[in-house]
Amino acid sequence: MNNTQYDPNLVNQFLKYDYHDRGMMKWQGFYLSDHTAVMDKNTKEQVRKLNEKHIKPMTNEEIANTINTALVKNLPVQIDKAERTIEGTIPSKVTGLISGWFGSQIIVNNEVLLIADIYALTILKSKANL
């Protein structure tokens, strides 16, 4: 249509009676790149957590000796708890300095852990790994 054939009444009639704007409905099927990036990141994180394995298990004596060494030398540790979530993932490892050992419990980063709940622990080489 060119300008000589332009009819404002026809346009008004179309907009008033024939055209139905669906509003936001037309956008609901589209994902923005930000959304897909977050979904990809979450999916990769879920797959990583499901595939994560415990480190080599330790005996109670090995755990006690490692805790003692870490306390005496004031070295940070990384603790692998002997548990899994309902989804089957291993909870994140507890990392930090052992600030106390009381009977069957230790304190790492103000978190009290039962020694019986420790699957394994490793001494980190330096405090820079915290």
Rank of each mutant, 00 (worst) to 15 (best):
E83Q: 09
S99T: 15
E61N: 12
E87H: 02
A82V: 02
H54Q: 08
M25Q: 15
A82L: 09
K73A: 09
M39N: 01
D80C: 12
K56C: 05
I106G: 07
P57E: 07
V108W: 01
M25R: 13
K93H: 08
K41V: 00
K73S: 11
D80L: 01
G88L: 03
I63Y: 05
Q78V: 11
S99D: 08
S92F: 01
V47Q: 06
K93F: 07
L113Q: 10
L71W: 06
P91D: 05
E62G: 04
I86H: 04
N42M: 03
D34K: 02
E45P: 00
K53D: 05
Q105R: 11
F30G: 04
H54N: 06
N110E: 14
L75T: 08
I63N: 07
V112F: 10
L15E: 15
Q46K: 08
D117L: 08
Y119F: 15
M24D: 15
G100K: 00
K73T: 10
D80R: 01
G96I: 02
L75D: 08
K81C: 03
T66S: 13
R84K: 14
L97N: 11
G100N: 05
A82D: 14
F30A: 10
V38M: 06
H20P: 01
N110F: 07
V108P: 00
Q46P: 00
N74W: 09
T66V: 06
L15C: 15
A116P: 00
D21L: 10
Y31P: 03
K41R: 06
V77A: 14
W101S: 08
L121G: 04
E61G: 05
A116V: 09
E52V: 02
K81M: 11
I118T: 06
